[in-house]
Each structure stands twice: as structure tokens, then as C-alpha cells.
């Protein structure tokens, strides 16, 4: 499976859920869709989890400085 960017991953996740909801594929196909979906969720989550610590750092850098708004 080629590496997807976030937008593509979320789009693919949507497709997978829709396909499973339709319930037209065989058990094997469903399981492989499920696996693909889970790994996409994991990838996305991993990326999002990394953000937490980055944001902490950024907050320190930016502080509560002034804004143009």
C-alpha cells in the first residue's frame, strides 16, 4: 500500500466505512477492508498524537504575544 497523505487517508477511510455499511462484500474482503481502515486510523492517529507535544513546544515559543486582530 503506497503512503497516503492525510487528505487521501481520510477520504479512503470514508470509502471503507461506506463499503462496510453497504455490506455487499465477502467476509474476506470485509476483513481486508477492516485491516486497511485500522491501519489508516493508526497512521492518522500517530500523526495527530505527534502534534500534541509539538504544540506544547510551540506554545512556549509563541507565548501569548500580541496579534493583529
Amino acid at each position: 500500500m503506497e503512503k497516503k497523505n492525510f487528505e487521501e487517508s481520510m477520504k479512503r477511510l470514508n470509502e471503507i466505512v461506506m463499503a462496510l455499511e453497504k455490506n455487499e462484500s465477502s467476509l474476506e474482503q470485509s476483513i481486508s477492508l477492516f485491516e486497511e481502515g485500522l491501519s489508516l486510523v493508526k497512521e492518522c492517529d500517530l500523526q495527530l498524537k505527534g502534534f500534541e507535544s509539538k504544540v506544547q513546544e510551540l506554545m512556549k515559543t509563541y507565548g501569548n504575544n500580541n496579534s493583529t486582530d
Partner: peptide, 12 residues
């Protein structure tokens, strides 16, 4: 998404 996936696969 995670919840939905496991719900759907359990149904299947």
C-alpha cells in the same frame, strides 16, 4: 472511524 470500523466488522 475506529469505532465504526470495529462495529461494522463485528456485524459482518
Amino acid at each position: 472511524f475506529r469505532q465504526m470500523l470495529s462495529k461494522l466488522i463485528n456485524q459482518k
